[in-house]
Amino acid sequence: MNRIALVLAMLATAASLAACGSSTGDRAISGGGIGAGVGALGGLLLGSPIEGALIGGAVGAGAGALTKEKDINLGKPIWR
């Protein structure tokens, strides 16, 4: 598997895990956090963890904001 495919797989994983909480804001925040973490790991493999975290965070936040609680529910956010 080449590096770009690995990063895309990691971003897809982050998007599928986003997000926890019932409000759109909670889901965007948690999705952004999950996506940033996964993106940073992918970016580390490609040599740019900061860019990976930024891209992953944006993808995760977008996925979290666009999903509903009934679609994906990881439970109550840790900040609540």
Rank of each mutant, 00 (worst) to 15 (best):
L8T: 09
G32A: 13
L17R: 07
D71T: 13
T13I: 07
N2Y: 00
N73P: 05
S16A: 15
G35L: 03
K68T: 15
K68P: 00
I78S: 14
G56Y: 06
A18I: 02
S23C: 07
K70F: 11
I50W: 08
P49G: 09
E69G: 04
G62T: 12
L8G: 09
S22R: 09
L66F: 09
A9Q: 01
G39V: 06
A63S: 13
S30N: 11
C20K: 07
K70W: 07
G57V: 09
A28C: 09
A58F: 10
D71Y: 03
G60Q: 01
G62I: 14
G75V: 04
L17V: 04
D26K: 04
A65S: 13
R27Y: 01
I72V: 15
R80I: 14
I4T: 10
L6P: 00
S23T: 15
A61T: 08
R27W: 06
G52H: 13
L46D: 14
E69D: 13
A12R: 04
V59W: 03
G52L: 12
D26I: 00
A5T: 14
N73Q: 14
N73T: 11
G56N: 08
M1I: 09
L6M: 13
A14T: 05
L45K: 02
T24P: 05
G32R: 00
R3P: 01
L54P: 00
G31F: 02
I78H: 10
L17N: 07
A63V: 12
E51D: 11
S30A: 14
G25D: 04
G21V: 08
G57W: 02
G60E: 02
I29A: 11
L17G: 05
A9F: 12
D26R: 01
I78Q: 06
V7M: 10
L66V: 03
A5V: 13
E69V: 14
G47T: 08
A19M: 01
G43T: 05
A40W: 01
K70T: 13
L46A: 15
G75W: 05
L46K: 14
L74I: 07
A65Q: 10
L45Y: 10
I55S: 00
L17T: 07
A9Y: 01
A36V: 05
A12S: 07
R27E: 03
S30T: 15
A5I: 14
A53Y: 04
G43L: 05
D26A: 10
G25A: 11
G47H: 02
G56K: 08
D71W: 05
M1R: 05
P49Y: 12
G25H: 00
E51G: 08
C20F: 06
K76P: 10
S30Y: 04
K76E: 15
S23H: 07
A9V: 06
